[in-house]
Design a protein around this nucleic acid. Structure first.
Lengths: 224, 224
DNA sequence: ACAAAAGTGTTCGATATACACCCATGT
DNA sequence: ACATGGGTGTATATCGAACACTTTTGT
């Protein structure tokens, strides 16, 4: 078997909705190249590891979370993308609800959440990877139900609407939004309410589709 | 820089519409493993080559064609997918119009077109790769204009409809199809006609969108 | 004259969009 | 009483789906 060996990493773009904005978890690089710059968490693929396993491992190491939405994004292989030599990276993106993501980036000064609208200088081609991740997330939001992956198990309809507004970057009409969600039959009302401070308590809902992927097969869309 | 090096290949799923069916170009393996089985054309990524360059090179070597639609599909990295050792493959898919694809698979007994409905035994995980390619092609067909990539420069509306019917695996209504195409303003009528044998000659059209990707940005869809 | 594919409109139901007011609660 | 976010319905436009006959050509 001929062919030159190259190094392969996985990078995991971890999204969460925090403080009313779409945020991404980045780690600060300690060593050259790009020492001090921020980077997407990632690492080398181990010899006996599937790519998705490697991505799950990185995700666990970085945030402690498991069983979250994870999807392969794209592979980046420009021979000059790493100044040290040939490194191909397989990028993944993960969606983590804010309640589960609390643990991440709290203990160390070298991991932090950044709003996608206020990104720092990034190492390697990580700017491009984030750009592409956002594009993919926006597309997926419209024809799948991945949006629910960014919410805790119980959520209000206003929170759900906020997920769509923050990611798509536009305001949606509350009445139209709620009618569509009701029509799709993907949420069930609970007998619980949440007080958001000073105003009327909001009813909580839960996501009812057993598997989000199934929706597409049924032709169900979220066309906002 | 730690991390074990692995071998990386690109595999290129080459689609074309031939004899009224969606067909794929496969090559027969001469050596073990899977000697005699059919495989997706591909090869190792060279040390100074971008992934897309590698895919374009494989495409050129296999079919002689250039400037065709090429898109990265997915990366497959199961540690056991190649019995010889760790090989990660980055799969691409290409769309080639029948008139340009004539050269491919004609000179050698070791390259042949197969209808997607009559696939032979496949090497490695190539069955899965083809399955995923078809799924992706079907999806793309509905929200982009990749369909035109499978046609020659000049085509009849019946030929265009056939592309959609063959890939989606269902009949479409001629009147609805033509109304939608006209509405999208992506084809222009020519002053030429083609005689298909015994019946009334069909008007030829050409694709007018400068770049097919732009369509999505404009919200233009092909929702058949 | 007939076989074969090309070409052409209308109706109906579903879905998207635009739009404004009352409700429950805490202070 | 008022400030805050929660909750609800209707009218119109647009789009997708169903459906059948006439036209042009070669034999």
């Amino acid at each position: 078997m001929r062919g030159e060996a190259v190094k392969v990493t996985v990078d995991v773009v971890i999204f969460s909705i925090r403080d009313g904005a779409l945020q991404v978890l980045l780690v600060r690089r300690r060593y050259e190249p790009f020492a001090g710059a921020w980077a997407i968490p990632g690492g080398f693929v181990l010899p006996d590891e599937d790519l998705e396993q490697a991505a799950l491992r990185e995700l666990r190491e970085e945030t402690g979370v498991e069983h979250v939405y994870l999807e392969q994004l794209y592979s980046f292989g420009d021979p000059k993308r790493d100044p040290r030599g040939r490194v191909i990276t397989v990028a993944y993106f993960a969606l983590v609800s804010a309640d589960r993501a609390l643990q991440a980036g709290t203990d160390a000064a070298d991991a932090r959440w950044f709003a996608m609208s206020e990104l720092p200088e990034l190492a390697f081609d990580h700017g491009r990877i984030l750009e592409y991740s956002l594009e993919r997330l926006r597309n997926k939001l419209e024809y799948t139900s991945v949006g629910f992956q960014l919410l805790p198990e119980k959520f209000t309809l206003s929170e759900l609407q906020q997920v769509y507004e923050v990611i798509l970057g536009k305001r949606l009409d509350k009445r139209n939004f709620r009618r569509k969600i009701a029509l799709l039959k993907v949420v069930a009302p609970l007998r619980e309410f949440r007080r958001q401070g000073v105003s009327r308590p909001a009813r909580l809902f839960r996501f009812t589709a057993a598997r989000f992927e199934k929706l597409k097969d049924k032709g169900i869309l979220f066309p906002f």
